[in-house]
Simulated scan of single mutants.
Amino acid sequence: MRRVETGCALAESRRNGRVGLGLAAMLAVAPGLVGCAQGDAVQSVTGWWHQYEGGAIAQQRPPPPGAHQPYPHVGLTPTEAPEMPSASARTALTDQLKAERNFGRRLAAADGPLPVAPPKPAAPPGQNAAASGSSMTVAAAGGGPAPAQDWTMPAVTKFAPPPMRPGELPQIGPTPPPVPAFPGFDIPETAVGTPRSSPAYALADPHGVLIRFAQSSDQMLAGQEKSIGDALTGWKAGLPVYVTGFGDATSLAPDDQAASLRLALARAKNLAETVMLRHVRAADVHLAAAANGHFGRVSLVP
């Protein structure tokens, strides 16, 4: 009995030892698994590869400069005033940007919307019958069969640069290469090197304070009362007030110009009524409207 008990105790102790070793191995691997769970798969694979390579790339990165210093006071930075252009230079730059913006708007209105391709005309009855397998043929005006059209693409001239030696910079010619010509297609003037003449548009902003309206509407946006008050600063009874409405025209076509002018008149009338609520007589309000332009303006000078 003692031998049997001794053998059972020995087997039990061995089993407990294996379990203890397994627990110890799991506890040793657990920190590594927790560390892997903190990063994504890419970071884990990258870390493993760096450890495999060894050397400087496997070492820990040094802390960034100033990591242990106190945080700076953001309200005290920057300590030096930045270099700014003079007031006249800033005004000139603002006027230039306004002119470029107005030129782009006027040019877009002059170009008009993109053309829409007309619908494909219906084929003649004889041509439909020929396409359906009928024995009828389309005859030309002279009584004979219609001549076959040549649908082959024209030859395209391709510019071949001269060969260059290794390490040699390409030589830029005095003029660009010629534009390839396609029969039946009109090449734009800008492609052949002819500069486009700029039309003589009035690019300066109109006088007065800008009053914003809703898109394609004569209703003013919220918060425009302050702008109207700023426009009437310095006004005295009996002095004229100039109110102008603009129609946001996007094309110079007669129909579009007429519709934009009606919108401009509606905006000018609505703006004039708002101005007269500030004790301005109707006889002192001068109305104007223009199809090109945006929103409305109130000014004390014409």
Rank of each mutant, 00 (worst) to 15 (best):
N102W: 00
N102S: 13
F103E: 00
F103A: 05
F103G: 02
G104R: 10
G104N: 09
R105T: 00
R105Q: 09
R106E: 03
R106I: 00
L107P: 01
L107H: 08
A108T: 04
A109C: 07
A109L: 01
A109H: 00
A110G: 06
A110M: 11
D111Q: 15
G112H: 02
G112Y: 03
P113T: 02
L114T: 08
L114E: 11
L114V: 08
P115C: 12
P115K: 07
V116L: 10
P118N: 01
P119H: 00
P119V: 04
K120C: 08
K120L: 13
K120Q: 08
P121Q: 09
A122Q: 14
A123S: 10
A123I: 09
A123G: 04
A123Y: 02
P124G: 08
P124E: 05
P124A: 12
P125S: 11
P125E: 11
G126M: 05
G126I: 04
Q127V: 13
Q127K: 08
Q127T: 06
N128C: 14
N128L: 15
A129Q: 01
A129C: 07
A130D: 03
A130R: 00
A131N: 13
A131P: 05
A131R: 12
S132H: 13
S132M: 14
G133P: 01
S134Y: 10
S135R: 02
S135A: 15
M136L: 14
M136T: 13
M136R: 07
T137K: 12
T137S: 01
T137D: 07
A139R: 12
A139G: 05
A140I: 00
A141K: 08
A141C: 01
G143R: 03
G143E: 02
G144L: 09
P145T: 14
P145N: 10
P145H: 05
P145K: 10
P145W: 06
P145G: 14
P145E: 13
A148F: 05
Q149R: 13
Q149L: 15
Q149G: 13
D150Q: 12
T152N: 11
T152A: 15
M153R: 15
P154H: 07
A155G: 10
A155H: 06
A155M: 04
V156I: 15
V156H: 09
T157L: 13
T157D: 14
T157Y: 14
K158Q: 10
F159G: 01
A160W: 02
A160N: 11
A160I: 05
P161K: 09
P162N: 08
P163E: 14
M164W: 04
R165T: 11
R165Q: 11
R165K: 12
